[in-house]
Design a protein around this nucleic acid. Structure first.
Length: 420
RNA sequence: GUGGGUGUAGCUCAGUUGGUUAGAGCACCAGAUUGUGGCUCUGGGGGUCGUGGGUUCGAGUCCCAUCAUCCACCCCA
C-alpha cells in the first residue's frame, strides 16, 4: 500500500504529462480567443453546495462524493463536478452586479468515488467553460462550438455531437405528466432502476441503456415534443446557429443529463473508440442554478470535457501527441577542469534558450556519448584537457555523425547558427 | 455496489503431475574500443513469485482470505 497510489488514481509521468500540457495549452488558447477568462476555485467546497446544486437524488450526491469532516466538524466535499463551484464564486463575489455576460474557463481536478474502469478514474481532470448572464441561444452555440473546435484542433475526427432540449421547469411539468401516464401501464416491464426512477425522476428513464426498457419506451413522449413556445424557439435558435457554423450534430430526443440543474439545451460529445465510457464531453444550459444557490436569477450554459478520456480518444484515432522535450546540446567532458568549464557552459546555453545537459554520473566518454544518444541529443559538445588547453571544443552532430572543432569563445554562436 | 479476468525482474512474459541455487527477451551498467553514441559480442546488477493464512516432508504451482489491477454493468467526463 505504501508504494501504491490510491485506487482509481494515477501518476502522470513525464511522457503522459507532455500530452496533458499539449491538450491544456490548446484549450487555453481557444478559450482566450473566445474571451473566456480563467477561474480557479478550491478543490473542496461545503458539502451542501453540491447537495443543493447537483441534486440530492443524483448518483453523484448519493454514492460518489468524497465527503469528510474537517477538524472543526465542517462537512466538506472534494468537488465532484466543475459548475457548482464556479456558480458559487459568481455569487460570492457579486459578479452578477457587473456588466454581463461573464465567461469563465477552468482546468480542474474532479473527484468521484466510483469503480475504476477504462476511461474512468476517482480523480480525473476536466477542461470546462461556464457562460453566465444571457439566455441568448448563441451563447449555447458559442459554448458548443468552442468544444467542437477544441476537439478538431487537437486532431480528433471520429466523434459525434448529440443535442437535445429538456425544456424549462414549466414545460417539463407537462412532459412529466405525459410520460408518467405513458409509463404507468409498463412499469412492471422496466428494470428495477427505472422503477425507482419512475417515482423520483421519470425523465431519466428515457436514456436508460437497458434494451428492454428502450423497447418499452417506443413512442414515449419526449421533452422536445412538450417544449413551450419559448423553449422551442430557443432550441431552434441553437440548432440554426450550429448549422450556420457548419457544426454537424445529431438530435437525441432521449438524451437527458444526470444533474438536477440542467434546463433547455443538453449536449454530449461521444467518441466510439474508447470502450464503454464513450462520453468525452458534455454540458448544457442551467438557468436555474445560480438562483437555487442563493444568487439572483441568472441564466448559464457550459460544458465539461474529461482530459483523460480525450487523450484516450486521440490516441485511439492515432493522433500524434507531443513527447517530453529532448536535449538540444549535451556536454561530454573528460577530466575535472573540463567538467568545471561545462558547468558554466551549461548555464550559458540554457540562458541562450537551449535544452542543455551534462553528465553528472561520472561516466566514461563512451558512456556519455551513449547516454546523450539515448536522451535524443541533437548535438554533443566534447571537452577534454586537450581542447581546454587549446581553447576549443568538439561539436558533434549526432544525426549525421560528423564533428568539427570550434573555438570555445564562438561555441554558443556556432550552435545557434547551425540551427536547433 | 454487482459480475468476470489477471497478479513471477523496471517492461513483456515462460515456469512440467507440487520437487535442488526461479528463467528468457527487452531495458539498465560495464568491458571488447586506456578520448566518441546507434550495430555486434562478452559479462554484471536486479525477484519478500501482490499480501496474509492453510494443506504438504516440500508451494511460484493446490485451497481460503485480502489487496491491487483490467474489462463490463449502474452512472458518468
Amino acid at each position: 500500500m505504501l508504494t501504491t497510489a490510491p485506487r482509481g488514481t494515477v501518476d502522470i509521468l513525464p511522457e503522459q504529462a507532455a500530452k496533458f500540457q499539449h491538450v491544456e495549452n490548446t484549450f487555453r488558447a481557444i478559450c482566450h480567443r473566445a474571451n473566456f477568462k480563467e477561474i480557479r476555485t478550491p478543490m473542496f467546497e461545503h458539502s451542501e453546495l453540491f447537495n443543493r446544486a447537483v441534486g440530492e437524488q443524483t448518483d453523484i450526491v448519493q454514492k460518489e462524493m468524497y465527503t469528510f469532516l474537517d477538524r472543526s466538524e465542517r462537512s466538506l466535499t472534494l468537488r465532484p463536478e466543475g459548475t457548482a463551484p464556479v456558480a458559487r464564486a459568481f455569487i460570492e463575489h457579486g459578479i452578477y452586479a457587473q456588466a454581463q455576460p461573464t465567461k469563465y474557463y477552468y482546468i480542474a481536478q474532479i473527484f468521484r468515488y466510483e469503480a475504476p474502469q477504462h476511461g474512468r478514474y476517482r480523480q480525473h481532470q476536466q477542461c470546462g467553460v461556464e457562460f453566465f448572464g444571457t439566455r441568448h441561444p448563441y451563447a449555447d452555440v458559442e459554448v458548443i462550438s468552442l468544444a467542437y473546435n477544441f476537439y478538431r484542433q487537437l486532431g480528433l475526427r471520429q466523434f459525434d455531437l448529440l443535442v437535445n432540449t429538456i425544456g424549462c421547469p414549466e414545460c417539463r411539468v407537462e412532459h412529466r405528466q405525459a410520460l408518467s401516464q405513458f409509463l404507468e401501464s409498463r412499469i412492471a416491464k422496466l428494470c428495477p432502476d427505472c422503477q425507482s426512477r419512475y417515482e423520483r425522476n421519470p425523465m431519466r428513464i428515457l436514456d436508460c441503456k437497458n434494451e428492454t426498457c428502450q423497447e418499452q419506451l417506443e413512442g414515449a413522449p419526449t421533452p422536445v415534443e412538450y417544449a413551450c413556445e419559448a423553449c422551442a424557439e430557443h432550441y431552434a435558435g441553437v440548432k440554426a446557429g450550429l448549422e450556420q457554423l457548419g457544426i454537424p450534430y445529431k438530435e437525441a430526443p432521449r438524451l437527458v443529463r444526470g444533474l438536477d440543474y440542467y434546463s433547455n439545451t443538453a449536449f454530449e460529445f461521444h467518441s466510439s473508440h474508447i470502450g464503454a465510457q464513450g462520453a468525452i464531453g458534455a454540458g448544457g444550459r442551467y438557468d436555474g442554478l445560480v438562483a437555487s444557490c442563493g444568487g439572483p436569477d441568472t441564466p448559464g450554459v457550459g460544458f465539461g470535457i474529461g482530459t483523460e478520456r480525450l487523450i484516450l480518444a486521440l490516441e485511439a484515432e492515432g493522433v500524434e501527441l507531443p513527447s517530453p522535450s529532448s536535449v538540444d546540446v549535451f556536454i561530454a567532458t573528460l577530466g575535472q577542469a573540463a567538467e568545471q568549464k561545462a558547468l558554466s557552459l551549461i548555464a550559458e546555453l540554457r540562458e541562450a534558450g537551449f535544452v542543455a545537459e551534462m553528465d553528472l554520473m561520472g561516466r566514461s566518454l563512451k558512456a556519455q556519448m551513449k547516454h546523450a544518444g539515448r536522451q535524443g541529443a541533437a548535438r554533443v559538445v566534447v571537452i577534454g584537457d586537450d581542447e581546454l588547453a587549446r581553447g576549443v571544443a568538439v561539436v558533434r552532430d549526432m544525426k549525421v555523425s560528423q564533428q568539427r572543432e570550434v573555438p570555445l569563445a564562438e561555441l554558443i554562436a556556432t550552435l545557434q547558427q547551425s540551427g536547433q
